[in-house]
Amino acid sequence: MVIVFQSKPSLLAGGVVAGPLEKRSIFSQYFDAIYDDERWEMKTNEQGHRKMVEEACEFAMKKAGVKNPDIDYFMGGDLVNQMTPTNFAARDLAIPFIGLFSACATSVSSVIVASLLTEVGAANFSLAGASSQHNAVERQFRYPVDYGSQKPQTAQWTVTAAGFALIGKHHEEYPSIEAATVGKSIDYGMDDPFHMGAAMAPAAFQTIQSHLEQRNQKIYNYDLILTGDLGQLGLKLLKGMLVESGVKNEELTLLRDAGAEFYGQDESFQSGASGAGCSAAIFFSYVIQQMRAGTYKRVLLVATGALLSPLSFQQGETIPCTAHAIEITMK
């Protein structure tokens, strides 16, 4: 069921920080800070990951002129075991906190929960977002980062980035959240952890279709439908599914994917970018800024997440995926 927000909570600010390799992102000009050290001068990747989360949150708060005690809730997650980077960042931020895991779809699931808290009047301000640090995530899900395995063309590169948004009561000058769809967990039997786009595309398709249907909208009613991290191949598959369901070809140009575009056309990244920080970084920098500039009036953000673990993969399980969507408008 689609959630329609009567009070239309607003995205008051976004904070995005990224690692050294993310200088190559075609979106890097929209980020608040890019660090030269992938560990943020900390001892371990995980500590750097934590620092990254804190700094993204601080940028978001600074832009809106609020401080930690003003924030009622902190919603977020990452991909490391038990989400310790975000949990530890919550310790240092000292804001009431609920950790959320929707893999790379956490960037949107966290905003949905924060918007609901705003809607029922439980929160004036909340921080919501997600993050990923390449080294910490790769060792978790695949191989040590220095292991020389050959990645296929279907593989995606986990970004080092954190993106957090400050969500508050409706404000006309800021992009506002009109509606949201919480996705089901969809499994089309894909089982290749080096081909996540193919596993996630059906989840994105179902969430988009159900959102449009229940909102009584067509794709062309939006200025942009931006998925999270399907990558170039996953985006192709999503478009293929949409065409099959009767969507016209000219509408497909309104469909873009943050993962496919993140690093431009650079082939060293294979099918593109992924990771919880990928969609969060683009949604809470580029999208918010473009909406405030008036480039887009109505946007559908669809974050996709592959709900696998190394354990489930090794035990021969397929990869269930989810996609959560928020509809954002700007007067």
Binding site: G19, L21, N45, H134, R139, P144, D146, W157, S268
Partner: peptide
Amino acid sequence: IFKPKGNID
């Protein structure tokens, strides 16, 4: 002596 590096080139 070494640290893991997430470099691509």
